[in-house]
Write a protein that binds this DNA or RNA. Structure first.
Length: 520
RNA sequence: GGGCGCGUAGCUCAAUUGGCAGAGCAACUGACUCUUAAUCAGUAGGUUGAAGGUUCGAUUCCUUCCGCGCUCACCA
């Protein structure tokens, strides 16, 4: 830290010296003729002769990422929008004062330059500078130019430095932006209307998770940050918005991990008069289109594997358990094994004998066990985009049951890269059935499941006014970004992931201490 | 929360069984008007995450704490 402050102080003095040369320390604006990426696009193909006549005069701005001084001339690389262009500064060209300014520049400073394009002896496109304008000072030293910033914690805590130093990080977030654009485009093309529903809710519903709690002072009431927008979007379907969608944050007070951040982005959409098969088709199309829009193709790298977004498979949950049943756990299950709680229990016991123990509570509903068994048996095999459909009713309090098998619902999830990335179903619109499902969830809550769904009387009232048949889907945007950018932790696709608060032991605390001392 | 690992200069990393805490880059001074990880000569920069213990002596061994990473469990 002492050295840090030395450099800071030294650079402040340089800034004063720069002002003494007639520059403004923090000026308001600088008119450029070209952005650096534009120059690279337009002139990279031109020869030295083509650049000479006619001569191309430019004004550009950027951050100094490399600087080399050789007596009375020097080179810099200016970076803008993640791309770099070299400039050549010669005392003869910029004059005495201009060169004094050049000598006061540091790595990380922002400058604007005016000059003309040429090629150096080694052929690199370069600006021959006539005039330097100082734009802004970097008072803190950037990380080492060769190794850059690799410390994971610093990268997340100081994302601004990470973005300056690591162009591939910038790329990930550009792709994230493209993905969201693509999702919106597909939704709009299908006639969906974008809406915004409450982030603060009196009852945290629409999913099975623990919420964050906050408080409104004037109304003196506790509110929950939403765990899902689902119940509000379906209220809108009741109200006559036949196709609605929302892209926004959900908050779940759960653990952190490579696939989990407490706030994450979800796309949710609801379509009246559609069932879960329609939603599977739409979602498959949405994701395939997104892969193409973001990466330009349908095949993406995922670690040492490849995901082919044009090749999907569909399996029921029961089929998936049978298909991926490990040989070591004995004969594959039969469909009839899933019909009784006893049959499922036996499957779990057989599986657990050959594998690491899968957690399960004998008192829980059989459907819950089946869903856990599916995750234990199949999830790790689901690298290619796969739609798993027909989920147990016990874990699907908002889905419509299969007409012929009431223990199973018209629900699906989409898996890729061993992650669940989407969840959709034919929406339960029978208010009395919905009340019974909520009551079953309340029993689970009494059994100690803090994540079980709460009773939402207003939602039941909304259904009682009549909701048309509808299908709905939620798509995990962060996880989709991970898959499309080969990022293996969610923190790499969220600009500012949740971290523990920074320890204030060093600089900030010292400063406040010295302030109190001064006050005394 | 459990298990494993890590923490040394601003950044990236060394340091023989426990024996003088080092290098490159960044910084500073000087030389250099086509360099590009510029080069050359020199200078400065450290409470080895914190506290305690063992020892003649601790970056190294032990304990506790703090922080980070990986991983397992709950969760999308």
């Amino acid at each position: 830290m002492p050295l840090d402050e030395n450099i800071y102080e030294l650079r402040r003095q340089k800034l004063k010296a720069i002002e003494a040369l007639g520059q403004i320390a923090y000026r308001s604006k600088y008119e450029v003729t070209n952005a650096i990426p534009q120059i690279l696009t337009d002139y990279s193909g031109k020869t030295a002769e083509q650049l000479e006549n006619p001569r191309v005069n430019v004004r550009v701005a950027g951050r100094i990422m490399a600087i080399r001084l050789m007596g009375k001339a020097g080179f810099c690389h200016l970076q803008q929008s993640g791309q770099r262009l070299q400039i050549y500064v010669k005392k003869d060209a910029v004059g005495e004062t201009g060169f004094e300014l050049y000598k006061l520049l540091d790595l990380g400073d922002h400058i604007g330059v005016a000059g003309y394009l040429f090629r150096t002896r080694t052929g690199e496109l370069t600006i021959h500078v006539d005039e330097i304008t100082f734009l802004s000072k970097d008072l803190l030293p950037l990380p080492e130019k060769w190794h850059g910033l690799t410390d994971v914690e610093l990268r997340y805590r100081q994302r601004y430095v990470d973005l300056v130093m690591n162009p591939e990080v910038r790329e990930v977030f550009l792709k994230r932006s493209k993905l969201v654009q693509s999702l919106r485009r597909t939704m709009e093309a299908h006639g969906f209307v974008e809406v915004e529903t409450p982030m603060m809710q009196p009852i945290a519903g629409g999913a099975v998770a623990r919420p964050f709690v906050t408080h409104h002072n004037t109304l003196d009431m506790d509110l929950y940050l939403r765990i899902a927008p689902e119940l509000y979007l379906k209220r809108l379907v009741v109200g006559g918005f036949d196709r609605v969608y929302e892209i926004n944050r959900n908050f779940r007070n759960e653990g952190l991990g490579w696939r989990w951040n407490p706030e994450f982005t979800m796309l949710e959409y609801y379509q009246a008069y559609a069932d879960f098969h329609d939603m599977m088709d739409l979602t498959q199309q949405l994701i395939t289109q997104a892969a193409e829009d973001v990466t330009g193709g349908t095949k993406t790298k995922w670690g040492d594997q490849e995901i082919d977004w044009s090749n999907w498979q569909r399996l029921t949950m029961r089929e998936a358990i049978i298909k991926f049943w490990p040989d070591s756990a004995g004969a594959k299950p039969e469909m009839s094994d899933f019909t009784s709680g006893d049959g499922i229990k036996k499957l779990v016991e057989r599986f657990n004998r050959s594998h690491s123990q899968m957690a399960y509570d004998p008192g829980e509903p059989a459907g819950k066990t089946t869903a856990s068994l599916f995750e234990a048996v199949a999830e790790e095999h689901l690298t290619q985009p796969t739609i798993i459909y027909e989920f147990p009713t016990a874990v699907s309090p908002l889905s419509k049951q299969k007409p012929d098998e009431p223990d199973w619902t018209e629900r699906f999830e989409i898996y890729a890269g061993q992650m669940e990335i989407a969840n959709g179903f034919s929406e339960l619109n029978d208010p009395e059935d919905q009340r019974r499902r909520f009551e079953a969830q309340l029993k689970e809550r009494e059994r100690g499941d803090e994540e079980a769904h709460q009773m939402d009387e207003d939602y039941i009232r909304a259904l009682s006014y009549g909701m048309p048949p509808a299908g709905g889907v939620g798509v995990g945007v962060d996880r989709l970004v991970m898959l499309l950018t080969d990022s293996h932790t969610i923190r790499d696709v969220i600009l500012f992931p949740l971290l523990r608060p920074e320890k204030s032991s060093s600089s900030s605390e010292n400063r406040s201490e010295s302030q109190t001392d001064a006050e005394k």
